[in-house]
Every structure is written in structure tokens, then in C-alpha cells.
Design a protein around this nucleic acid. Structure first.
Lengths: 342, 342
DNA sequence: CTGTTAGCGCCTTCAA
DNA sequence: TTGAAGGCGCTAACAG
């Protein structure tokens, strides 16, 4: 068992000063003049004894804990969304804060409880995150507290909100194809499928499609078609399979994410279509998967790390930051796009 | 700004009792008899005022914070290792604890500092994790503290250690092939390549190869060959490519992980070899990738979530748990294995 | 059955 | 330039 920790009082005694003096010296404050000699004695005593401040006590006294919380529905589940945590942890560290991480599995009760508990622990601020950009209702407790909403579309909450710029993602996807000359035979795969939770279609998908259509319109053209499917490889495969089976030879595919693109690759390759010579493919996520596919996949970066970072930064440097902060999504070009043949 | 929090003293006053009584009632202790009437009054006052205990103050007083820490070198970076965090967070929650997450980028100084700071915050215990199973030197501070080592091979630290059972993974891989009749033409891909950090080969790889060889020997056979490569798709592709180019038609491949297997698929398919009819493939990771490949890949589960969970459990329920805890790695059979043709 | 008293370890006003 | 005293909010001995 750890031997009893050294306290400030002990350091003070060892140095032959009062704890007040020791406190001033060790917290490096200069507004109160302490004689150089006393300073030295305190420092030496502290080192000799291996003093470490009790941060719990300090937090109780000052009401500032140098702690942030990150609560999300199912954060790490989606593989790379763990990047959000990394971004948040890193940014917290640069501000000398530690990060509490909590997960609620989407259970609203648990969520309220968790947020509550974090504030019971006197966190200096809280990031409330959901897995994908979507409407959601944060616990009321957040309302008048230092907090940031991540990927959470919530009207009536006057807080900073961090969102990926999905419309830009759509524009970047389309632009990558337009710029090499594609105009016809461009299909969207997994565009914005409807789910029980999102009867109008996934918000991210809708926003991206708007971006795609905007850019294609600027170039005097439009999508040849859009196939709905969930955002998994098997579904992407099936969607492209059905397209091919109906006799279509698409010139370019705009895939909802890298996993859908993987399915698309499988279907195209099954029919001997070459990427990018016969069919160009672009996608969104810029996950590792994009680099693993052959040929490597051009994909719009989904900046999880950056979003985690920014959220915490907004906590640490509040300023006047309420409102939506859109994190850029830029195309990372690889080898899956070429000019249309012929 | 949050209005001033309600304190226990205020609840006590509102209920017309002393704060001691209020404290006993609200922490649900029964060893001291409080009249039902007083209990009711305290509860009502607490509800009416919206009382929430200040956990910082409680922690200072009791020296128990209901907090654990998880510090690792580069935790979330590897995609699915974020699962470790999830497992740890979940298990902490079941023990009414919150989890601090910290990351050190492998910097030893930062590491010492982080561990120190977590104990300054009075965490009840600490998981020290590294990305892959490997020898490492935890900060001395951990020595006489409640801590668990995760994937960290450290002699001289008398602490519970959690490790994946890589030898079992090797046995499971080989067994899946043996059981359907493979004896010849079995190659290991990315077996245990040497790196700067591991001149003798990656520890996990070595352990697995031992398992593979053990089982194959039991069946009176051995590997036809082992190709070294780093554990990425491009390298797996290149390794299998070179095998095929040298005229070999392997009957089965034991891949170091799902990414290597993905590269293997690409090479095999390029040559028109069918999986599993011509060549069976097994692997380790059981990542999502295994389900995305066509045909779906049989892969030994790498239980990140479970390891995170177990580590925290060992913190929460210490018992006499020092020594190594091996977490089972079991084959998850899918569609990439078949009996050898002919 | 309940209240008084005394800290946990630290910071900070005030007086010397 | 320094020290004494008080209190952050809570719990735990010990009386009554």
C-alpha cells in the first residue's frame, strides 16, 4: 500500500515556514513577495520529501478541477470514432486537463445520470457527443453549464456546436469527378438511405447529396441515379451488383463511405471492370480502409480527431463561441479516379 | 453560469436536522438508526432543493474517489484498440466508477508525469496499457500502487497483468485448417517479422507461431513456409504475390492479421485463385474487416474489449490476482476455409 | 436515535 | 515579507 502522502504542511514545517508561504512558492505565484531564501528552502524541502499536491483538495478549495468530461452514445464502437477520444485527450492535455470518458449506449436515463455525475465531480466542462451528425436532445442539465455539443443537432441549446461539413464533403466528391471530365453515368451509392430513426434519410447523407447536386449543376449535369443502401460493404456490393445486372456500366460512383466503396470494388471487380479506367470511385471517410483497397481509394476526410480536438478547445478557450462550428472535410486524392474513357 | 450548488448543510437545515443525519440518510447507510420521519424529511428536502453531493469533497474526506485511470501509449490510434477504452469504461461503470483516459505517445517522461498526476487526483486504481503485447518498463510510481498492466511484459512488477493468449490464437488457426484435412502447402504470412524495436520478432507473432507449429506437429506435419512482412495489406499482398510468382500454389494461408489477409485476398484473386476452394485463408483480429471481405474471413478474435474490461475488473475486485491473466482468443469461423481439393 | 466536533489538504483573506 | 485563521463540502468519532 502506498505510504501516506506528503502534505503541504509537512513541506512547510520541513522548510521552517508557514504553509501559506509554501503554498505561494509551490504554486509559482509572484504577486506576493517571498524572500529568495525562503523560496529555496521550500523548493528543497518539497523535492526532498517528494511532495505532490493533492488535486482533490485543491479542486474542493478552488472549484476548478482541471478536468473535462466527454460523454457520448456509442463512441468507440465505430472503430475510427475512437479518434474523437484521441483528439479530445490530446487537446485536454495541452491545456493541462485530464479527460473523463463516459458512454451511455444511447440510454437517455443513463445519459442524464452520467452528465449529472460528471458535474458532481466538478468537471470544468463537458463535451456531449453522438456518433453521427443527427438531431438529438441533450439532458436539460447541460443547459446552463460549460458544454459543447459534438455532431448533435439541437435547437434551443445555446452552446457551441461542432459539426463535420457534410455539404462540403459532397461538393468535394463531385468536384473530384467533374474536374477530370465526368459528366454522365455518375451514380451515388448509399446516398441517404432512410432508417427508422431517420425517416427522411440520414442527415449527413442528405447534406452531402445537396453538395453533390450543387456542384454537378454548376457543371451543367446531374446524377444518372442514386441507389439507397445502408453503409456497409455487403450493401454497397448488392447495390452496385444490381446496377450492373440491369445492364448499366457506371462511369463513376460516389459512395457514402469507404465501406460502401469496398463493396462497390468487389462488385466491379467481379465483372472485370477496372478501377479507375472503366469506373472511377470516390468516397467519404478517409479511413485506413481507403489506403488498403487496390487501387487506393480517393476519399473525403472525415475529421474525427479534429472534431474531438476542437470541441475541447472550445471548452478550454470559451470566448464567444456559441453557434455551429463546421469542421472542413477535404478530398484526399488517391488512385481511384481517372478521366472517363473515350 | 450555474447557480450555486445546494450543499448538504442546506438540506439539513431545510429538513430541520443536523448535517450528520442528512449525510447518513442520503448515503443510504443503515448502521446508524435514523427515525423514519427524519429520513422522510431529509429525502424531501433533498428533492425539493435538488441536492447533489459534491464528489470532490467526498473524495477528499474519504480518500476514495470512485475513479480509475487508463493510460496508454497510443491507444485509439489503431482503430479497434479503442475497444479497450470501451471495455474499461463499461466495466468501470458497473462498479460506479468513472474513467480518466490519458495517452502518452510513447514518451516516457510524459508517461511518468501522467501516472503521477492521476494519483495526485486520487484515482482508486490505474490501468497501464500498451498497444500490442510487448516488453515495457512502467514508471516506478506504479510499483506500490493499485494498478494493472495491460499487454505489458514487465518483470519485477508484482501486479496483475492482462495478456491476449497468442499461443492459443496460433493453435486455433492451425486447428481450423487441420480439422478439414489440410496437411501440405500451408504457409504463414507475416508470421513474426523483425522490427527495430523487436529484433527477435514481434512477441505476439512468435507466440502464435509456436501455437501453429505445436498443432501441426500433433498432426504429423509442418508449415510449408513462412513469409515475413509487416502487418499491412500492401505487405501481405506483396508477400503472397511473390509466393505465387515463384510458382507456388498455396493450399492454405495463415495470416498475421485481417489486414494481411486482405492483401492475401487481393493477390489470390488477381491470379484467379478461389477462396476457399483453391486456397483456404485464416487470420487473427476478427475485426470488422473480416466480415467485409468476400468470402467472409475466418479469424481468431483479438479480445480488446474483453481485455479492457478485465483490467478494470481486476482493479475493482482486487483479490489475490497478481500474475498473468491470459484472455482467450477463439476462432470465429466464416467462409474462407474448406477442405483441400482433390 | 441524533447532534457536536473535528478534520481531509489546500488556498486565501486579513492582520502583523 | 510572513503567519494565523477560516472554510471549501463532506464524513466519522464520540457523546449525549
Amino acid at each position: 500500500m502506498a505510504q501516506r502522502r506528503v502534505t503541504l504542511a509537512q513541506v512547510a514545517e520541513e522548510a521552517g515556514v508557514s504553509s501559506t508561504t509554501a503554498s505561494f512558492v509551490l504554486s509559482g505565484r509572484t504577486d506576493m513577495r517571498i524572500s529568495p531564501d525562503a523560496q529555496r528552502r521550500v523548493r528543497e524541502a518539497s523535492d526532498r520529501l517528494g511532495y505532490r499536491p493533492n488535486l482533490t483538495a485543491r479542486g474542493l478549495r478552488t472549484k476548478v478541477t482541471h478536468t473535462f468530461g466527454l460523454v457520448s452514445d456509442i463512441i468507440a464502437s465505430s472503430g475510427y470514432a475512437g479518434e474523437i477520444i484521441r483528439g479530445a485527450v490530446d487537446e485536454a492535455a495541452t491545456h493541462q486537463h485530464m479527460l473523463f470518458v463516459g458512454e451511455t449506449q444511447g440510454d437517455a436515463d443513463l445519459e442524464r445520470q452520467l452528465v449529472q455525475e460528471l458535474f458532481d465531480r466538478q468537471v470544468d466542462g463537458l463535451v456531449y457527443a453522438v456518433l453521427g451528425p443527427r438531431p438529438c436532445v441533450p439532458p436539460e442539465t447541460l443547459r446552463h453549464r460549460p458544454a459543447v455539443l459534438l455532431q448533435c443537432i439541437a435547437d434551443g441549446f445555446d452552446l457551441p456546436k461542432v459539426m463535420p461539413d457534410d455539404a462540403q464533403a459532397g461538393r468535394e466528391s463531385a468536384r473530384a469527378l467533374m474536374v477530370v471530365g465526368h459528366r454522365e453515368g455518375v451514380y451515388a451509392i448509399g446516398a441517404h438511405h432512410r432508417t427508422e430513426a431517420h425517416p427522411a434519410g440520414i442527415p449527413a447523407g442528405l447534406a452531402r447529396m445537396n453538395g453533390v447536386e450543387e456542384v454537378m449543376a454548376e457543371h451543367g449535369t446531374r446524377l444518372a441515379g442514386a441507389l439507397q443502401c445502408t453503409w456497409e460493404p455487403a450493401e454497397g456490393f448488392a447495390a452496385v451488383r444490381s446496377l450492373l445486372d440491369s445492364g448499366v456500366r457506371p462511369r463513376a460512383l460516389i459512395c457514402a463511405n469507404d465501406r460502401v466503396a469496398m463493396g462497390a470494388y468487389q462488385a466491379l471487380q467481379e465483372d472485370g471492370l477496372r478501377i479507375p479506367e472503366d469506373t472511377s470511385v470516390v468516397s467519404v471517410d478517409n479511413s485506413d480502409l481507403a489506403t488498403w483497397l487496390r487501387p487506393a481509394l480517393s476519399s473525403v476526410d472525415l475529421p474525427y480527431y479534429e472534431m474531438g480536438r476542437l470541441s475541447v478547445r472550445l471548452l478550454a478557450e470559451p470566448g464567444d463561441a456559441n453557434g455551429v462550428h463546421r469542421v472542413p472535410m477535404r478530398m484526399v486524392a488517391r488512385d481511384s479516379v481517372a478521366a472517363p474513357a473515350g
